Computed example of a mutant assay.
Amino acid sequence: MTNRTQVIFFDAAGTLFHVKGSVAEIYLRYAERYGVKRTDETLAAVKAAFARAFQEAPPPVFAAADPAAIKQCERMWWFDIVHNVFYRVGMFEGFDDYFDEVFQAFDGPECWTLYPETLGVLKALKGLGYELGIVSNCDSRLFNVLRGLGIADLFDTVTISSLARAAKPAPEIFRVALDKHAADPEEALHVGDSLRDDVEGARRAGMTGVLLERESGSTAHQVPTIRSLDELLALVEN
C-alpha cells in the first residue's frame, strides 16, 4: 500500500454487514410455513446444500442490458440456487410461492445487520478525505439493503456484477469500479473477506487487496490482513 491511496473499495455482505443468523436459518424459517420441519439435521443439510449450490453456480453475469431484464436474470439465478438446495434436501408443494417470499425478504434491511464498527469506520474514512466504493457480486437488491442500513450515502459508487457484466475475482469488475473514480489501480485498495474474490481479484487488477478475517485463521497469507474494519484506519493512516 502506498500513500497515493485515494479510493477505498469494500466488499458488501460479509464485510460491511452480515445476515442475521445464517442464510440457511432464514431460508428454513420461511420453508416452515410450507410444511418443512426444522431439525438440526435439516438445518445442517440446508447449509451444506447451499455451499454446494454456490460452488456449482455460474458467475452472476448476464447478457441482458435492460434494467428490468437484468433484475429478472438475477431472480432466475437465485431461483436456480434455491431450487438446487431443496432438490437435494427435499422439495415441497408451493415452492414458487415460497421462493417469491424469501427472495423479497432479502430485498431490504430486515435480514441484515451492520457489523458494530462499520458505520464509524466509514464516517472516519470519509472525514479523512477518501473516496469510498463498493465492489460486490450481490445483485441489485443491494441498493435497497444499503439504504435500509443507513450507509448508502457514504459511498460514492456501487459496482455490482450484474451491471458490470463481470464478477469477482475477474479483474474487469474492479476496472469498471476504478473508471467511475477516474483512478489508477495504484491509487486504490479493496477490502473484503474472501482471499480469492477480494484480495486476489483486486491484485489481478493492479490494486492493493486487504483481507478481512474476523475469525482466527491462517497467518500465512502474504497479504495485508485485518481482524476488523477498525484496523483499517490504522492501516491507511500509516
Score class of each variant (00 low, 15 high):
4 R>E: 15
4 R>C: 08
5 T>D: 10
7 V>L: 08
7 V>M: 07
14 G>N: 04
16 L>T: 07
17 F>A: 05
18 H>W: 02
18 H>N: 05
20 K>I: 05
25 E>D: 14
26 I>K: 08
29 R>M: 04
30 Y>K: 14
31 A>V: 04
32 E>S: 14
32 E>W: 05
35 G>R: 00
39 T>V: 06
41 E>L: 08
42 T>I: 13
43 L>D: 02
44 A>V: 08
47 K>P: 00
49 A>N: 06
50 F>L: 15
52 R>Q: 14
56 E>S: 07
60 P>G: 13
62 F>P: 02
63 A>S: 15
65 A>I: 09
66 D>T: 08
67 P>D: 09
69 A>V: 10
69 A>N: 05
74 E>A: 05
76 M>E: 15
76 M>Q: 15
79 F>L: 14
80 D>F: 03
83 H>I: 00
83 H>Y: 12
87 Y>W: 08
88 R>P: 01
89 V>M: 07
89 V>A: 05
92 F>T: 12
93 E>F: 04
96 D>K: 09
98 Y>C: 05
98 Y>N: 05
98 Y>V: 06
100 D>Q: 12
105 A>V: 12
105 A>Q: 13
109 P>T: 15
111 C>K: 12
112 W>I: 06
114 L>V: 09
116 P>F: 11
116 P>Q: 11
121 V>L: 13
121 V>A: 14
124 A>I: 04
127 G>P: 07
128 L>H: 11
128 L>S: 13
129 G>W: 06
130 Y>F: 15
134 I>Y: 08
135 V>H: 04
138 C>H: 13
140 S>V: 10
141 R>M: 15
143 F>R: 13
143 F>C: 06
147 R>A: 14
149 L>A: 13
150 G>R: 09
154 L>P: 12
154 L>C: 11
157 T>C: 11
161 S>T: 08
166 A>I: 03
167 A>D: 03
175 R>E: 10
175 R>S: 02
176 V>W: 06
178 L>T: 03
179 D>R: 11
180 K>G: 15
183 A>Y: 02
186 E>Y: 10
189 L>N: 06
189 L>A: 07
189 L>Q: 07
190 H>N: 09
191 V>S: 09
192 G>P: 13
195 L>T: 00
197 D>G: 00
197 D>A: 10
199 V>W: 01
199 V>T: 02
200 E>L: 14
200 E>M: 14
205 A>Q: 03
207 M>Y: 04
208 T>P: 00
209 G>L: 02
211 L>N: 03
212 L>H: 03
215 E>D: 08
216 S>G: 05
217 G>C: 01
217 G>P: 01
219 T>I: 00
220 A>K: 07
221 H>E: 06
223 V>Q: 03
224 P>R: 09
224 P>E: 10
226 I>M: 02
226 I>R: 04
227 R>I: 00
227 R>S: 13
229 L>P: 05
229 L>Y: 04
234 A>G: 11
